[in-house]
Simulated scan of single mutants.
Amino acid sequence: MKRCRVHILRAGSCSHPAVMTRRDAGLAPAVFPALAALIVHPDEGPMLFDTGYDPAFFAATDPFPERLYRWTTPVTLEPGQAVADQLPAFGFTPGDIRAVVVSHFHGDHIAGLTRFPEARLFCARAGLAQVQRKGRVARVRRGVLAALAPADIDARAVFFEDRAQVALGPDMAPFEAGADLLGDGSLLAVQLPGHCPGHWGLLVRQSDDRTRFLIADAAWSSGAVRDDVPPPRLTTALLGQTGPYRETLNALHRLWARNPEVIVTPSHCGEVEVETRRAD
């Protein structure tokens, strides 16, 4: 199996009450980093898992009703923090990115997509359908900003559902199968239902031989996975489905409990953020 170098990048942050992400947390506002991953494949070169925030997010949320997204989850993005602006530190330009793996189409995960015009876009067919559904208010209520999707996304999309399914093996139980994105077993997309339609994670074998499981918003924190504590029903019902979300979180908890060597990596976790200043 091919091994990849993985770098966790912080691309801005948002704030909202902590209790919205974990039902036993308080009402005080908390800051949630928007994390993406730069994945350097030994043959295919640099790829991304999500993009975090980008200046395009602010343009997309200028009009109403899209501005409601910015009001409900205030966003901070410092100069140079967008993923495209961080790439030169690793020796790459946005044009070098060969693929972006889109976990789902919420604005905090795809805001930078248009900065990578040469990239294939691996995504779920069900996720892309959310961008293309009618009704701006309905899309915003689901956390989707259609303006962030590249105009040629239909031509560049490669769907998880169409890739060959491979068995994950006993070390990843209770997860059983993943979609082999490159055909070499190095990047395996795994369906993680509940947060929203078309929500998937990504398994990567790192150059240090450890397995990293990028789980996007299947949990907002590593602590929620360890403790098996979901968000309140209000949050999960607003964006997705409460039952499947809690089943997915419990499956991640069981994976962590039986195989803590797997690096389970949520996209908004402060614990994971400490990795953004070092390379894996």
Rank of each mutant, 00 (worst) to 15 (best):
A164F: 06
A28L: 15
V225K: 02
A99D: 02
A149K: 00
G270N: 14
S103N: 14
R210F: 11
P244C: 06
G135K: 11
Y69S: 12
A119Y: 04
L121R: 01
F57W: 09
R277W: 12
R3H: 13
L239T: 08
S222N: 05
F159A: 09
P150Y: 05
A126S: 13
S186K: 01
M1W: 09
R142K: 15
L202R: 07
V262A: 03
D209M: 06
G107M: 03
R133T: 14
E66R: 03
V229D: 08
T248W: 11
V190F: 02
R142Y: 06
F105D: 01
L214T: 01
Q132P: 01
A119M: 06
V19I: 14
G45W: 03
R205H: 11
S221A: 13
E118M: 12
L239A: 09
H16W: 12
P266G: 07
P88N: 09
R141N: 09
D184F: 07
P42C: 09
V100L: 11
V140H: 04
R70N: 11
P55I: 09
G243P: 01
R98D: 02
L35S: 00
E271I: 04
L239R: 08
D171S: 13
A216V: 02
V6M: 10
T93Q: 15
A147R: 14
D85C: 10
P17F: 07
M172G: 00
A279H: 13
R136H: 08
V31I: 15
W71E: 15
A89W: 04
A25G: 05
A82K: 04
R278L: 13
S221H: 03
P33A: 06
C196F: 04
L27M: 13
G198Y: 02
C123M: 13
G91T: 14
D62K: 12
R141S: 07
T236G: 03
F92I: 06
G45K: 03
G127A: 05
A155K: 09
P231R: 02
G45P: 01
A157N: 01
A147M: 11
G201D: 03
F105M: 07
V204G: 01
S207V: 12
A251R: 15
V83T: 11
A146W: 09
M172E: 00
A167D: 14
R258T: 14
L121C: 00
R22A: 04
Y245V: 04
Q130P: 03
R205Q: 15
L77T: 04
A89F: 08
P232E: 03
G169Q: 10
M47I: 00
A177N: 08
R141P: 02
L255A: 03
L145K: 01
